[in-house]
């Protein structure tokens, strides 16, 4: 096996995870496989997973949904968040719809929605009912 080749059993595993409803984990696996490689196969898997996850994110977090911070101060600071997530948190006002937040962030729409979903999952952000 050359250094740039992707182990096929790992790709199979990623597919299994998708079947089990673990598309997020599958994407992370494929992203880690893609590092340092230019394989069209990996890129294809990655694109497929991103499209699938985008649909999931949209279902979980519709365009019209509104978000607000659930945690503040030291509770918030205890998390190990990337700067992109910090930026999105700074934009939450409980009024701006998710579609506008994504557009306003200037981030890649997939990355913005992924961050928002993760922030909800971590209990940092919540939907305004």
């Amino acid at each position: 096996m050359s250094a740039a080749e992707v182990p096929s059993h790992l790709l199979m595993e990623a597919l299994d995870w998708v079947q089990q409803g673990r598309a997020e984990d599958a994407l992370e696996l494929v992203e880690s496989l893609a590092e340092g490689r230019n394989g069209a196969q990996v890129a294809g898997y990655e694109e497929l997973l991103r499209a699938r996850l985008m649909e999931e994110y949209r279902e979980r977090l519709p365009d019209a949904a509104r978000l607000r911070r659930k945690l503040e101060g030291s509770e918030l600071l205890s998390f190990n968040l990337p700067a992109g997530a910090g930026f999105l948190i700074s934009m939450l006002d409980g009024e701006t719809p998710v579609s506008d937040l994504v557009a306003l962030s200037g981030m890649d729409p997939f990355d913005a929605r992924r961050n928002l979903n993760r922030l909800i999952g971590a209990g940092i952000v919540e939907l305004v009912s």
Partner: peptide
């Protein structure tokens, strides 16, 4: 105060 303004291998920076 601008939490998570940046991050590096050591973690987030506020």
């Amino acid at each position: 105060n601008l939490p998570f303004i940046a991050s590096d291998p050591d973690g987030p920076r506020h």
